[in-house]
Simulated scan of single mutants.
Amino acid sequence: MSNNQPSASSKCVRVCQNRACKKQGAAKVLAAFKASVVPGVTVTPTGCLGQCGNGPMVLVLPDRIWYSGVRPYEVPMVVEQHLLDGHELKKML
């Protein structure tokens, strides 16, 4: 792979599993990301991301892109457009 091409291998998706996000369905969001395997992308549950009330919160690193109010049915869009194509989903930021 050329150094000029974006690599998914360095990405990490963190899905908040703290109380407020869990009440809003974060466990299902985490499960949807884990079911959408992208080679080289790590999906991890995390504690509070400090955005209580906006959840479920998803943080993509190292891009430092925050997605709020993520629903399980939106995960395939994030995977396809952000993780695979490198384009953030502006309407979910």
Rank of each mutant, 00 (worst) to 15 (best):
Y73W: 05
A26I: 05
R19D: 11
R14K: 08
W66R: 06
V75E: 03
N54Q: 14
K90Q: 09
R71C: 05
P76G: 10
M57D: 03
P56E: 00
K22S: 01
G69E: 00
P56G: 01
V79E: 13
T46H: 13
L83P: 14
V13W: 05
A20R: 10
Q81S: 11
K22R: 14
G25R: 05
Y73M: 04
A35L: 11
Y67T: 06
V38E: 07
V70P: 00
V58Y: 00
A35Q: 14
A31G: 13
V43F: 02
L84Y: 06
I65P: 00
V13R: 04
V41S: 05
P72G: 00
Q24M: 08
G40W: 04
S36C: 11
K23C: 00
Y67L: 09
C48L: 08
G47N: 13
R19N: 10
K23Q: 13
L49K: 13
E74T: 00
A26H: 07
V60T: 03
R19T: 08
G47H: 13
V79D: 14
G55Q: 11
C21Y: 06
R14L: 12
A20W: 04
G40Q: 00
P72D: 01
E74A: 03
L83M: 06
G47V: 10
V41R: 08
D63A: 15
K23I: 01
Q17T: 10
H87P: 00
G47D: 15
Y73H: 08
S36D: 15
T44D: 02
C21W: 07
V43W: 02
G69I: 11
V60N: 05
L49T: 02
S36A: 15
L61W: 02
W66C: 04
G53A: 01
P62A: 12
N18P: 00
G25P: 00
G47Q: 13
G69Q: 12
G25C: 02
R71I: 06
C52R: 11
V37K: 10
C52F: 12
W66S: 04
P39Y: 05
K90F: 06
V37Y: 07
P45M: 05
M77W: 09
M77L: 14
A27W: 03
C48K: 12
E88W: 15
Q17H: 03
S10I: 10
M77A: 11
A32S: 13
Q24F: 03
T44P: 00
K91Y: 06
G50V: 10
P56L: 01
G50Y: 14
V79S: 14
A31N: 12
A35C: 09
S68G: 15
G53S: 02
L30F: 12
A27S: 14
Q81L: 07
K28Q: 12
L59Q: 08
T44E: 11
Q81C: 08
Q24Y: 04
R64T: 09
L61N: 13
R64D: 15
P76H: 05
V70L: 09
